[in-house]
């Protein structure tokens, strides 16, 4: 099979990607072209292969078939253009390093072999932490950070890389409201700089609000395109199947419980 060619203006092009774990295929025949400068949400039910898609693009797991092209070239030649924010649970947060050390890891690639981290890299790391509003935690050991703060540290590490295309695996999972706002602000800043972000997302309620492009995934790409066109009830039903009805109901209830402005000041009311 010949590798298909894509113009260097396309940040990410996926052709015929199939991934299998053991004997079970997890992603079938994914074809996807992501336009530049978009905030892209990857949405789908549990086990739909959202994280797998990202990991296969980054060659963290083997592809059974298919090609991934980044700005017109295979990934291996374009590593410096790609930033990655893994899932928070993927590392051991008891590791004896500080927040600053973790962020400085984003500079290692540019630093190259054998050269130690110097003042310059530390300043870059500090700056990135500052952009996420956690500069004051720079010297804290990472296990002493809250979940949201840990997530911000991971984002700062990706930021330090100064990439063009970012892959983020569930950055909004189990973070506090302040962190969620900080991440959204950061995403918009990145977009304004013409960068492209692919974000695995699990909260349907905020998809339309956060992303201007969306990929609906369930082992295959159900639909992909601008959010206002694609993020419709029919398409979601195709993606989630029968489970959507339940989700909707739960979402409604949550919204009733948490609508701002209708709160009379009695904590016991909304039961």
């Amino acid at each position: 099979m010949n590798a298909p060619t894509h113009p260097p203006s396309v940040p990410l092009a996926i052709d015929d990607l199939t991934v299998a774990y053991h004997r079970k295929p997890v992603l079938w025949d994914v074809d996807l072209d992501i336009p530049e400068g978009k905030l892209v949400g990857i949405v789908g039910p549990n086990g739909a292969g959202k994280s797998t898609l990202i990991k296969a693009c980054l060659e963290l797991i083997p592809k059974a078939s298919g090609h991934v092209t980044i700005y017109g070239q295979p990934y291996r030649k374009q590593r410096s253009l790609v930033g990655y924010v893994p899932q928070r649970e993927s590392v051991d947060w008891d590791f004896p390093v500080s927040a600053l050390d973790v962020v400085a890891m984003g500079t290692y690639r540019k630093l190259g072999w054998l050269r130690p981290v110097a003042k310059e890299q530390k300043e870059l790391a500090c700056h990135a932490l500052d952009r996420l509003g956690v500069a004051h935690l720079a010297n804290r050991q990472i296990s002493q950070l809250s979940g949201g703060q840990q997530q911000r540290v991971f984002l700062a590490r990706a930021l330090v890389q100064d990439a063009q295309l970012y892959f983020m695996d569930e950055p909004f999972a189990a973070v506090d409201a302040a962190t969620e706002r900080a991440i959204v602000t950061l995403l918009h800043e990145l977009k304004d700089q013409g960068k492209t972000c692919l974000v695995v997302h699990h909260d349907l309620a905020t998809v339309a609000q956060y992303f201007d492009w969306v990929v609906l995934l369930n082992m295959r790409v159900v639909k992909a395109g601008p959010t206002e066109e694609i993020f419709t009830k029919e398409n979601l039903k195709d993606t989630y199947g029968g489970r959507l009805a339940l989700l909707e109901e739960a979402g409604q209830r949550l919204r009733y419980a948490g609508i701002p402005g209708s709160y009379p000041g009695n904590p016991g009311r909304s039961q």
């Binding site: 963290l60 990655y84 993927s90 973790v102 890891m105 290692y108």
Partner: peptide, 22 residues
């Protein structure tokens, strides 16, 4: 000592290290 930085990265976050081309 020479590979301090590289070893640390691999120990802490293997997946990230490999996306960075290490």
């Amino acid at each position: 000592m020479l590979l301090f930085k590289e070893f640390t990265l691999v120990c802490f976050d293997e997946g990230y290290a490999s996306t960075q081309g290490w």
